[in-house]
Design a protein around this nucleic acid. Sequence first.
DNA 1: TATTGTTATACTCTATAACTATA
DNA 2: TATAGTTATAGAGTATAACAATA
Lengths: 173, 173
Amino acid sequence: MAVSRTASAGAAKARKRPARPASRPAPPADAVQVGDLSEFLGYSLKRAQLRIFEDFIRCVAPLQLTPAQFSVLMLVETNPGRNQTEIASTLGILRPNFVALLDELESRDLCARSRSSNDRRSHILRLTDKGRAVLSRARKLIEARHEARLRELLGDHNRDLLLTMLGKIAREF
Amino acid sequence: MAVSRTASAGAAKARKRPARPASRPAPPADAVQVGDLSEFLGYSLKRAQLRIFEDFIRCVAPLQLTPAQFSVLMLVETNPGRNQTEIASTLGILRPNFVALLDELESRDLCARSRSSNDRRSHILRLTDKGRAVLSRARKLIEARHEARLRELLGDHNRDLLLTMLGKIAREF
DNA sequence: TATTGTTATACTCTATAACTATA
DNA sequence: TATAGTTATAGAGTATAACAATA
């Protein structure tokens, strides 16, 4: 699977006859055929992920938050008082790479580091008031624009099923 | 969402009482809580995608194929005689980045470039015999190891539903 | 001796501009 | 002039080693 952010594929659903669903324009006869590739989960997973991130970024554009930054704010809000290693490792971010990410959030006054009094090696993380406010606005934007459109596309039931299966893959596969 | 390839999350399914499914060990009381973050599709999607790619790479390790290389071989087999621009754009790969990818496949004698006689600017792509053989072996490995385990985890029906929804997101969202 | 945060660094992916050869 | 393949390059994201401060 290759898959960057610019889609194109028109992958006509494989049929014996070239029947058209009428809802979707017929792909040009000379279009490249995606073929069996779309039957491999990794391919569709990657393309869907890129599409979702793209839309996520667009939806929170007013707040200038990347998905990574959003995930850090979410986790620090839910787990105030944790140190960098704990937050980073929960998100699958390596400690060295977490430094610049936090520097940025701190420079924008969204998140604050403070030395732990128990263990003076640790930096305890908390959201600032502004951080909480921005996160709250971000959640509302995502919920109202991003997740709502997704539920509209898939239906509530299927959307929840999708989330369940993705979680299962992430945790148990 | 941050999400790299090293997972950890234990995200106990939200309940009124701390009931344990018994199948999965209880997360340590001091574990960082993923909380609402796992309710955002982008987060689970990214983590699942990383997990799937990781397993994909492991399954085809004997053939030393990345997901991107696999997708190129698949597309060139299904669409012999197409040029670089057509194959690259279908996969969402930018033309400049496609050059090194093809160089590698060609140096390993899996894929061949040849100048088009119609338009001498174009490089026509075809799989070599070795390319077809390697791709065939790769498909068998993925099917037998990777996709089979996935079907086992999710069930055939859910797995197909998952693929359908991901395709819908990639194409229509 | 081990761990936390950090720096330095490298490698992969992705993105844009610009060149060349053809059209 | 426009397009195909290419080069150069820059920026993210991700990975490892090693250092200072602290335990």
